[in-house]
Nucleic acid binder design. Sequence first.
DNA 1: CGCAGTTTGTTAGCCACCTGTACTAACCGT
DNA 2: ACGGTTAGTACAGGTGGCTAACAAACTGCG
Lengths: 382, 382
Amino acid sequence: MVGTLRGDRVPARVRSGEKVLPEQARVHNRELLLRMLYREGPLSRADLARRTGLTRVSVSDVVSDLLADDLVVEVGTRAGTRPGKPAMMLEFNEHAYQAVAVDLSHSTLYRGAVFDLGGSVVARRQVEIEGSTGAEALAKVVGLVGALREQVTARLLGIGIGTPGIVDLGGVVLSAPNLGWKDLDLQSVLTERFVCPVVVSNDANATALAERSYGESAADTLLVRVGVGVGAGLLLGGTPVLGSRFAAGEIGHVVVDTRSERACVCGKLGCLETWLSTRRIQEDLSEARTDAEHTRVLAAAGEALGAVLAPIVAAINVSEIVLSGPRRVLEGPLADAAMETIRQRALTEVHGDIVLRLSELGDDIVLRGATAMVMSQQLGIA
Amino acid sequence: MVGTLRGDRVPARVRSGEKVLPEQARVHNRELLLRMLYREGPLSRADLARRTGLTRVSVSDVVSDLLADDLVVEVGTRAGTRPGKPAMMLEFNEHAYQAVAVDLSHSTLYRGAVFDLGGSVVARRQVEIEGSTGAEALAKVVGLVGALREQVTARLLGIGIGTPGIVDLGGVVLSAPNLGWKDLDLQSVLTERFVCPVVVSNDANATALAERSYGESAADTLLVRVGVGVGAGLLLGGTPVLGSRFAAGEIGHVVVDTRSERACVCGKLGCLETWLSTRRIQEDLSEARTDAEHTRVLAAAGEALGAVLAPIVAAINVSEIVLSGPRRVLEGPLADAAMETIRQRALTEVHGDIVLRLSELGDDIVLRGATAMVMSQQLGIA
DNA sequence: CGCAGTTTGTTAGCCACCTGTACTAACCGT
DNA sequence: ACGGTTAGTACAGGTGGCTAACAAACTGCG
């Protein structure tokens, strides 16, 4: 059972450089109302009209569509007592649709889950990678999605995949060395196999979107994901920045210190990843004898990160930096050193208060991001 | 005579988070057609219909509006011979409107000009700064705009100001140390005085827009402006990035080398500007005795620039970097060293071919950018 | 020359979408 | 009971784009 959302009658969103029809105004307004209900809790039609500037008539019309699609439910009249006809409150319906989310960013297993639209987990599945790459890896991913597909207990909104590597707008994985993929049209493969909307995106971008949707993150946010490698996801005005070659956020192999002798897998010396990948940090920590040495290792990693982030923060003037990854490693000396380095290297008076914090979303962050991607694409809820 | 563009009947463009009316579809389509005519030369109504996907009927309707506004003119039937009724060619009318542009980024004078919409200079005026700041500087700017206003020989599309410092979306100069301005609502001052649309923007952003409009620059471009200080203008998808505190592009005071002892006016050591401002470069060059030393000074400046740009290039994956400033200084060793440093410090295989080039637009680049800003805001031509 | 084929641009009728006005429904306080 | 207030819904009207159909003006061919 695939969710149809009033059939395929809903027109696509506007892409820049293309014509706009009045129909697309409707799509926009529909998304506007739905987003408002999603984020700002129960509201009446009249509330929506006041907030959007649309007339109550128009709101009623759009809402009747949303009710027909089960995306919104009436939850009784407003509590409390005040003059006038009691308002019928509307609520975003978290249960009518579900999304399948998959996270390919781990080193030993592919994780997946079915989420409802409120972000609750309906089911989980995972599969061991066991060193498989290329077609074998693809088969495992398809198998995982299939297994999750069977656990869906409502209409299926879509499938979201967060993968390491470089992914274009059409869901083609241009390059993912860890998975052994190159120019793999993952979106088409899954769309054809499961006949439903599929969104494929870089894991860091998915993570950034998760922070925006489920966390407290600002519209302009830089998210740094520390794991096997280091990747960043950048949101400007709430929208992911992909870059001209879809490689935005690939900061792991920026050289921090040309005088460094730390060798990187990419062949250069002194890349950010030589300080900041979990593996290298573990190695460095295992050599640390004292607490002071321990702290120094983490601070050095933080300094390296700060050195890379400072010019970025200055150039795009983001107000918030979020770190995602193993909390034990990132928390404390590493985050502190990163922030301190950014302060020392960028002009904070000009760029305003910069907040650097750790993500609170835990291990499911990429899965949540993948869900957010599906919701963003299908419902305009970002 | 202020151009009215069908009176004030034209609705504002869509801001995110707001309702959309069918009227705005019209605005969008109107801008789409105008942009196409502006950039891709003479086209017939049927050509426009084919390219946009709109029907010939709709195109005719919109075009009749554009003709009424004098923004488009019919320039006779298509040359050459082919079957069917000869097409009436339409051309963007460069002469019906003019824009006033002002450049406040120089150290000794304020420059201004009147441009027609084809980018030709109708008149020039300038005023010596003579050390004036604050209210005095503002008076000079108002005087300059007034003098230019009198030179306008067609309908006035608007006034564009490119200024150093930090400018918010509403044209308030939040901070411009060189001019002695703080929280100055320059847009309101000029709108009230001259009763026409006014756009105020950072000079580097204006420059980036000029490169995009008049130069050959890509939709994702990082423009670096070297002058009294160093500032950058960033375009993503053709749209300027302002940042959460409107301070995007303020990279002059990013610390390049913490071990440096080069003192900066900002109080820190080793800022990019200590290598790359024109003043510091001149000082360093005057101490250089041999050609080799000369080259080394320029290369050091280029390396400093490259070190700052590398993380930025990696993070947002821009394909093009444009340098604007004194050609004698930037060309050759400096640009070469910058590019080489970026290559060494960022993973070019992943980020694709990065082009670094010098701007070809000369001294008028900020003025042209200011004109482009006005055209972008009033006509949707970016 | 005449006629078919092609392309352009316009006219006429239709549907989608939002608006303004006016209405009913349902509550409050006096 | 009655005015005042708020919520939601009919109904007519305007705008914007679409399809269908047509007139105008050209080429090419018999």
